[in-house]
């Protein structure tokens, strides 16, 4: 009703029609509510002197019933909507300055088959063969941007890490509930612990990239995406060992076997996937005297990559699976 109400007088096309609007105000509520006339008047008197007014519930109800059809209220709605729209635009502009929205949308461009295949790949990376990302070919034949995850299994995405993060929090709360020690604070604790863990990991990665002077475009978002895949292994470890251990936690040789398997799978997955991020092929480094320097630097980077995907991941996944 209110939508047609302010759709009828389009303010942009006929500005002079704004003038009759205030006269319209008093006409409509009086017409719309004929049954209780006396409380209406009393209520209007109450507007003039708000301190003495004790409006009966009937009168106030009638006033609220007319609220939607009141043209003043509709103008208020319109103003509010315009303000909201401008505010949203402003927010988008300012957010876009710090976070590249379209670059993030690229990471959420996933399909069902991609998610299933990627989960399978994270858990069973042993026989997977081509690990390089596909690049789309531009119309001129030169290599363009990387394909989105929907078209490329080896592309990092942020859907699985984000869902893994949320699932991990819920799962750890559920495990605590099964043991009968659930508190509502567990959500906050687990969330902040997992978030801080990822943050520390990213800080270490960025520091390592700075020290080894590794630079790559769209690197940070890739690293964020890849740092979230260990939640998949952690969730699988927790669930399987809870089931197989009969609810006694992730200890015992069954739990440690499952943990070792998921850790090794995740580490190999990261080692292969992060190769293009942390070991970029720079043909410009290969000139003459720089050869030895480039070789030693490549060794350092390789050690860094291996240390990240095995040592750091071991500590972090161990911490994650201690629910």
């Amino acid at each position: 009703m209110q939508r047609t109400g302010y759709g009828n007088p389009p303010p942009a096309t006929s500005p002079p029609l704004h003038h009759p609007v205030p006269q319209h105000i008093s006409a409509v509520p009086q017409l719309r509510s004929p049954p209780p006339p006396a409380p209406q008047i009393q209520h209007q008197a109450g507007y003039g002197n708000p301190y003495q007014s004790h409006p009966p519930p009937q009168g106030s109800f009638g006033a609220y019933g007319n609220f939607m059809s009141d043209p003043t209220a509709q103008m208020g709605f319109q103003v509010g909507q315009t303000a909201l729209k401008h505010g949203t635009e402003y927010l988008e502009q300012n957010v876009n300055r710090y976070v590249n929205i379209s670059a993030i949308k690229h990471y959420f461009n996933v399909s069902n088959s991609y998610v299933v295949n990627k989960l399978f790949l994270v858990l069973f990376p042993w026989r997977h063969k081509p690990w390089s990302r596909k690049q789309s070919t531009g119309p001129n034949g030169q290599e363009g941007w990387y394909l989105p995850p929907r078209d490329d299994l080896n592309s990092p995405d942020m859907y699985i890490p984000l869902m893994g993060f949320v699932t991990y929090i819920l799962l750890s709360a559920m495990v605590a509930g099964l043991r009968g020690e659930f508190q509502p604070e567990i959500f906050g604790w687990t969330a902040s612990a997992a978030f801080v863990m990822v943050a520390v990991e990213l800080l270490l990665l960025k520091l390592g990239c700075y020290l080894l002077s590794i630079s790559n475009d769209s690197q940070l978002l890739d690293l964020i995406a890849y740092s979230g895949y260990k939640f998949v292994g952690a969730i699988v470890t927790i669930v399987l060992s809870e089931i197989l251990n009969g609810g006694k936690g992730t200890g015992g040789w069954i739990g440690w076997t499952i943990f070792t398997y998921t850790f090794m799978a995740n580490a190999l997955f990261l080692l292969r996937s992060l190769k293009y991020v942390l070991l970029p092929e720079n043909p410009s480094d290969e000139r003459g005297t720089m050869q030895t320097v480039a070789r030693s630097q490549k060794m350092q980077r390789t050690y860094f990559l291996a240390g990240y995907s095995y040592v750091v991941q071991l500590v972090l996944m161990w911490y994650l699976t201690r629910v």
Binding site: W189, S192, F195, V196, A199
Partner: peptide
């Protein structure tokens, strides 16, 4: 599970 980490501790 002893919470080693938290936002406050990170800061």
């Amino acid at each position: 599970m002893a919470m080693l980490f938290g936002f406050g501790n990170l800061i």
